[in-house]
């Protein structure tokens, strides 16, 4: 088997811009690879393009946006992300998706079991009885107690955590190879968040599904992802395995983000309560020639404002920065 050599999901140089608005680019060339059985976290703050990446992969770009470059491949074969009809056979069947707001992902007018059933009917030929049995099985698989009763319940009768489990059941109903979870726990309490993450990990262990976890929560990433990709203002700025990224972040933005996250196990340095990153994210139309983080960066040099730094990978740790944070023990240049 050579599946280990072909990435499950591969995005290459994805560029998305606002139609009819010169210079308004949302994604400025994003590439990623997801390997079988792996969880890749995509981290960044609002406006960095992390959600847009997932929508583009699903062929669900909002109106007014267009893809100017980039390909998406699923186990080596190109995905026709511009073709809505062809994408209908890929969504749910080969790429499942979990959204931030489970309530918005479900139709309030139908019992949740029926909504899971609909996903099954769309992609698989099962008898009525067999299909319903599969619905019950799926709801049991996502650890919902008494799946028979839940299947007949309407969305408003269930808690946020239960609804998110139903959405996950819908996402895995057709055994997809890739699961994209876009802020799946942001609307939930921390105790429920932990349950949902554990559920995703359990399903992954069982089925080997590759998970793209899109989130802004670094704590979540630290304990659930194998690899992390950090995005800022439409570009990938750093990518590494989780351990190296947290112990030796190279990009000043990643460093700043980690320092700004409250962590009771670590005291802030510099006399402030939390280490803030000054300034705000640049507007998508801002025609900045260089690194888009430069105006907020403590390590910026002349070159940062003039050119976009290349994304260079050394020993599996990639960073797009002219003057990255030195590794621990490394002498600062």
């Amino acid at each position: 088997m050579s599946t280990r050599d072909v990435p499950l999901l591969e995005i290459e140089d994805l560029r998305i811009r606002v139609r009819n608005t010169p210079g308004a680019e949302i994604l400025r060339g994003v590439s990623l690879r997801l390997w079988p059985g792996e969880t890749l976290a995509v981290v960044g703050e609002s406006g960095c393009g992390k959600s847009m990446t997932s929508l583009a992969v699903m062929g669900l770009l909002p109106e007014g946006l267009e893809r100017t470059a980039g390909t998406v491949r699923l186990t080596g074969t190109p995905v026709p992300i511009g073709d809505n009809r062809a994408m209908r056979r890929i969504r749910a069947a080969r790429i499942g998706m979990v959204f931030q707001e489970p309530m918005a992902a479900l139709d309030p007018l139908f019992p949740v079991g029926r909504q899971v059933l609909e996903v099954l009917n769309e992609h698989q030929r099962l008898g009525r009885r067999a299909a319903w049995a599969r619905v019950i099985e799926l709801l049991g698989l996502v650890d919902l107690p008494d799946p028979e009763r839940i299947a007949r319940s309407y969305p408003h009768r269930l808690s946020g955590g239960q609804l998110q489990r139903v959405v996950i059941a819908m996402a895995i109903a057709c055994s997809p190879e890739v699961l994209i979870a876009d802020e799946p726990t942001t609307a939930l309490d921390v105790t429920v968040q932990a349950q949902i993450i554990r559920l995703l990990k359990k399903l992954q262990r069982r089925t080997g599904v590759g998970i793209v976890l899109i989130t802004h929560n670094l704590g979540l990433v630290a304990h659930s992802a194998d690899r992390v990709m950090v995005m800022y203002a439409g570009r990938k700025v750093e990518e590494a395995d989780t351990y190296s990224l947290f112990t030796a972040p190279r990009h000043p933005y990643t460093r700043g983000l980690l320092d700004a996250t409250p962590n009771p196990e670590r005291q802030a340095t510099g006399g402030r309560l939390l280490n803030e990153i000054p300034g705000i994210v640049p507007s998508i139309t801002d025609p900045m020639p260089g690194c888009r983080f430069a105006p907020r960066c403590v390590r910026r040099t002349e070159a940062c404002r003039a050119r976009v730094p290349d994304f260079t990978v050394v020993a599996g740790h990639g960073v797009a920065c002219f003057d990255p944070v030195p590794r621990p023990g490394e002498v600062a240049a």
Binding site: T191, A194, R198, R205, G219, A222
Partner: peptide, 25 residues
């Protein structure tokens, strides 16, 4: 205690919080 056990601290050098461990099932 239940809440603290579920809070993911952004620090990979420490063990994952109990609620995140798969063995908890």
């Amino acid at each position: 205690r239940r809440m603290i056990d579920a809070i993911p601290v952004p620090d990979v050098t420490r063990p994952a919080p109990p609620a995140f461990r798969l063995e908890a099932d």
